[in-house]
Simulated assay, not measured.
Amino acid sequence: MFHIRFTVLGLALGLGASVAAADVVVVVLVVSAKNPMATMNKNQVADIFLGKTSRFPDGRQAVPIDLAESSAARDEFYLNVTGKSPSQLKAHWAKIIFTGRGEPPLEVANGAELKKRMADNPNVLGYIERNMVDDSVRVVLVP
């Protein structure tokens, strides 16, 4: 009986892990295909998305755009690039806004809208699910 209980528990945990693994969102940072930026590191990206700088490493203006707050891709991006959870991110921006030092990135509903914004402005950078990458964008970081 004792052995059967642990076997059932092990199967349940194993199935839970499989389901959780299937829900992982693979997010990549992209810029417009018209943008000359070839690659960026996590620190450079984090600095832009956390309002510490408004420029690409080459000095050009950077326009970060976030996906909707309810997006799993947004949570995955911020955890992997900045190490911040959604609640930590809210606290970060509350402090920045309160002190008058900046505003959070513009927010769009989804990756398709982000790519549309990139087509209009090559200085936009954002993150999308890997399966949305096409020839209109260039991947500059895979966190």
Rank of each mutant, 00 (worst) to 15 (best):
M1I: 14
M1S: 15
M1W: 12
F2L: 13
H3Q: 14
H3Y: 15
H3A: 12
H3W: 13
I4W: 15
F6D: 11
T7N: 08
L9P: 15
S18N: 13
S18Q: 15
V19A: 13
V19L: 15
A22S: 15
D23T: 13
D23L: 14
V24S: 10
V24G: 10
V26N: 14
V26P: 12
L29A: 14
V31S: 03
A33W: 11
A33C: 08
K34R: 12
N35K: 06
N41L: 03
N41I: 03
N41P: 10
N43L: 14
Q44I: 05
V45I: 12
V45Y: 01
V45W: 02
D47F: 06
D47N: 11
I48E: 01
L50Q: 06
G51S: 04
K52F: 03
K52R: 13
T53Q: 04
R55E: 09
R60I: 01
R60G: 05
V63F: 04
V63A: 00
P64G: 01
I65A: 02
L67H: 04
L67W: 11
E69K: 08
E69T: 11
S70D: 08
A73H: 07
R74V: 01
D75N: 10
D75K: 09
Y78V: 03
Y78F: 14
V81W: 03
V81Y: 01
V81G: 02
V81M: 04
T82S: 12
T82I: 04
Q88M: 07
Q88T: 02
L89T: 12
L89M: 09
L89D: 11
K90W: 03
K90I: 07
A91N: 09
A91G: 05
A94C: 01
A94I: 00
A94N: 09
K95P: 12
K95V: 10
I96V: 12
I97S: 06
T99I: 05
T99N: 13
G100N: 11
R101P: 00
P104N: 11
P104K: 08
P104F: 06
E107H: 04
A112R: 09
K116H: 08
K116E: 11
R117K: 12
R117F: 09
A119W: 03
A119M: 05
D120G: 05
D120W: 02
P122L: 09
G126S: 07
Y127S: 07
Y127W: 09
E129A: 11
E129M: 08
R130H: 10
R130Y: 05
R130I: 07
N131K: 14
V133K: 10
D135W: 14
R138G: 02
V139N: 08
